[in-house]
Nucleic acid binder design. Structure first.
Lengths: 215, 215
DNA sequence: CTTGTAATCGGAGTGCGCTCCGGTTACTGT
DNA sequence: ACAGTAACCGGAGCGCACTCCGATTACAAG
């Protein structure tokens, strides 16, 4: 928790090129060997996940497969959670494009309430589709989800939409967190296993919640 | 994930005497030495938390302080999260008494909507008061919160109240999860640190959410 | 090309949660 | 009392995330 090296990844999420995060200031471009190693790490990790599943994705194994040291992985990705989030990053960027510039109702052009609903539904579907990876990412470190780049982006997007949909004076930042909270992979996993509830049930439940909340 | 010893704690939460959990079947009473060791462990853990804080609460340290082996701790409490939940158990039982048999609006006698509101507010206050411990408990293991005894009790209580407050056909089980989700210590920690929001803000936000949801 | 230097690399080392299993101890039936 | 047995105890050992720091290398200035 103190200053040390020049650029230790602030936390998990996306140190350099991924998830552009409007609030990320300029940083020196990546050195050639560093970029090469990032690719090696990502490729090795992808290979291991495809072959043995996310559970076997240990940092030492990735380092061995990539032919580098574990220190390099930590410099690039901060921690194990950061590595898994990086694996999800490609899909994440597609998703971000869809809700920021894609066709309605997910993209601009529809009513804010409709966009909110579409956004939450998309998040539920995505959570179901990439279940293993998302779950592993959120389970890697205690607060990984909230510290991740994608969460900040999703939260900001919801805040924007809610500001348009709700009367002024309401705490849209809390509301955004509250709407995102039921979509945690950890919770969806629990609902799936204990309550036998899938993505459909989650979406239906969210509709109930929104019907009351947003008319 | 397979059958092995006679009685390995089903998970974290409360293996034997704590949190009565209406659905817990009869189990053989605890042996004398086992009970004695549970007390020693709990006392040692309490002492360590008081002296060094929750962060220093390592299983090895507790074992050393209690003068027993680590295996005993794992037999009694399942995992580190179970131990921390056990530390919270005394307050938890008081809290359960209050909302099940205490005075309104938390206890029976008030309108379901009022009870729901009081219950969520109490949960927020409790999360703020016992913050360190609750946070440590939820952060100990990935899904610890949902697997814990207290969560099951809180969920069941909300389901009961929501069934009375909402028209039939709505998925009250999902709704209960969704209302509990924003009260996760992990999320409250994030809101506190990143958004500068305390228990007051959380309660106000919940009121917004409920005002729309429940009239 | 040479040199300076700051970012990068690598892997041995550390701490901690958790498991395993041989030895021990508390209850039950005779 | 006295076995028999089922539960319990303890601590060495394991796997894995993460750190530390001396050696190495990429890039820029002269």
């Amino acid at each position: 928790m103190d200053s040390r090296r020049p650029a230790p990844p602030p936390s998990s999420g996306a140190p350099e090129p991924p998830t552009p995060l409007p609030l990320a200031g300029k940083t020196a471009p990546e050195r050639a060997d560093a970029a090469r190693n990032r690719r090696r790490i990502l490729d090795a990790a992808t290979r291991i996940v495809a072959r043995h599943g996310v559970r076997e994705l240990t940092v030492d194994l990735v380092a061995g497969e990539a032919g580098i040291g574990v220190g390099t992985i930590y410099r690039r990705f901060g921690d194990r959670a950061g590595l898994v989030f990086a694996l999800l990053d490609e899909h994440e960027r597609d998703f971000q494009r869809e809700f920021m510039a894609g066709p309605p109702p997910l993209g601009p052009g529809a009513e804010p309430t409709a966009r909110i609903r579409a956004f939450l539904h998309a998040l539920a579907d995505r959570g179901a589709a990439q279940f293993e990876l998302v779950l592993a990412a959120e389970a890697s470190a205690p607060g990984a989800r909230y510290r991740s780049g994608p969460y900040a982006v999703h939260h900001m997007h919801l805040v924007t939409l809610l500001t348009q949909a709700r009367p002024p004076g309401t705490d849209v930042r809390f509301l955004a967190d509250a709407l995102l909270a039921p979509l945690s992979a950890l919770l969806m996993d629990h609902q799936r296993r204990v309550r036998g509830m899938g993505a459909q049930g989650v979406k239906a439940g969210l509709d109930d919640l929104l019907r009351w909340s947003l008319g």
